[in-house]
Amino acid sequence: MKRIVRLTLGIALLGAGAVHAQGTLDAVQKKGFVQCGTNVGLAGFAQPDSRGAWKGLDVDVCRAIAAAVFGDATKVRYTPTTAVQRFPALQSGEVDVLSRNTTWTITRDTSLGFNFVGVNYYDGQGFMVPKKLNVKSAKQLNGATICVQPGTTTELNLSDYFRANRMTFKPVVIEKLEETLNAYYSGRCDVFTTDVSGLVSTRGSRPNPADHVILPEVISKEPLGPVVRHGDDRWFDIVKWSLYAMIEAEEMGLTSKNIDQASASKDPAVQRFIGATGDFGKMLGVDNKWAFNIIKQVGNYGESFEANLKPLGFERGINELWTKGGIMYAPPLR
């Protein structure tokens, strides 16, 4: 009931129209921070560390936006959201941007009233089962009980997959990730399904990760990326290019360690990137050193991946740069 009240309040905000009278950038500048919707806690993507500071690949996108807008990556406030809370939170204006392992789909892009700015992690949906069940393939899961979170693409892909393969299953649908995982680990479900990144990340936080296996089948495409409200192109551009600046910097070899020396570079592209020449910042409506600030304070995409995901055992895989065999690709900054 409490959540319903919250939702209703959020919707009342929609009615009040105050959020929309001015652009998001103006509103953000006025209040002095970016309100970023994140995961409640998913190691490597968004999770508070022991001192309460938020860390993760998704969190770094929030920080990059703050660095671009304020020249200060710390000017972010986080709103942890479950899968079902995240969309009303963005629709109602409770958050300025959602950076929370959210899959880009046509429904969300159109009828939910959002715009996806790009992809910061290419993923797919997988299945995890206890090793002792001795299951080798998802095709053997007929009749299984499967734990899944509501309001996700996961829930829909799961039904599709079983229908397509003429199998049946019993879903156990619990809103909070923690309770879903409890249900799985206690044996209430035979299977836990979500994005493979989510499986790796949650399994890694267990005392005995080797007791659980991730099946070879990847049943969907899950391009995860930041989302903004439809209809505010200026804000859309800022969020989009904050993400692309991180990817572009990796391709250019610019890192948080060497960007201070970049002003000495003879490469005109580097000069433009750090804002020494050109006026990309002005075009976006932020400081001309926006990209420099992002890389200096947050780091490039590769650094963020290295710091947040490598320790959990993630490989770059298709999230490697296009120049190195992956599909991470930023449109040119020029």
Partner: peptide
């Protein structure tokens, strides 16, 4: 995880976006 009305409505409003 008991699929009562609110739980189903929650899923529905999330999948359709029609909060």
């Amino acid at each position: 995880g008991y699929p009562d009305l609110v739980s189903i409505a929650n899923t529905t409003l999330n999948q359709t976006g029609q909060a």
